Amino acid sequence: MKIVNSLKTLKTRHRDCRVIRRKGRTYIINKTNRRFKARQG
């Protein structure tokens, strides 16, 4: 999992990426291609 400053750029890399907020942290997860995972905060 990458920890990045900008999740917007990672979101555009694959069409199945979802932005999810949990416990004050923002995550990008992807069910079909699990390579695209990122966290912010």
Results as ranks from 00 to 15, higher is better:
M1S: 11
M1E: 06
M1P: 04
M1D: 09
K2E: 10
K2M: 15
K2D: 12
I3F: 04
V4N: 13
V4G: 11
V4H: 06
N5M: 08
N5H: 10
N5L: 12
N5D: 15
S6H: 11
L7T: 02
L7S: 03
L7K: 02
L7E: 05
L7Y: 00
K8Q: 10
K8Y: 12
K8G: 06
T9P: 03
T9L: 04
L10G: 11
K11H: 07
K11P: 04
K11Y: 07
T12V: 10
T12L: 09
T12E: 13
R13S: 02
R13P: 00
H14T: 03
H14K: 08
H14M: 04
R15W: 00
R15M: 00
R15F: 05
R15I: 09
R15A: 04
R15C: 01
R15N: 01
D16G: 11
D16N: 12
D16A: 07
D16T: 10
C17V: 14
C17I: 14
C17Q: 06
C17M: 07
C17R: 13
C17E: 04
R18L: 13
R18H: 13
V19K: 07
V19L: 06
I20Y: 06
I20W: 13
I20R: 14
R22V: 11
R22H: 11
K23Y: 14
K23L: 15
G24R: 06
G24D: 08
R25Q: 09
R25W: 05
R25P: 00
R25D: 06
R25G: 09
R25H: 12
R25F: 11
T26V: 12
T26E: 11
Y27M: 11
Y27D: 01
I28W: 00
I28L: 06
I28M: 12
I28G: 02
I29Y: 00
I29Q: 12
I29T: 13
I29M: 06
I29R: 01
N30S: 05
N30A: 07
K31T: 10
K31R: 14
K31H: 11
T32F: 03
T32P: 01
T32L: 05
T32G: 02
N33T: 09
N33F: 03
N33C: 08
N33S: 09
N33V: 07
R34T: 11
R34W: 01
R34F: 07
F36T: 13
F36I: 15
F36A: 09
F36E: 10
F36Q: 06
K37S: 08
A38T: 04
A38L: 04
A38V: 05
A38Y: 01
R39I: 08
Q40T: 01
Q40D: 05
Q40Y: 11
Q40E: 08
G41S: 10
G41D: 08
G41T: 06
G41V: 09
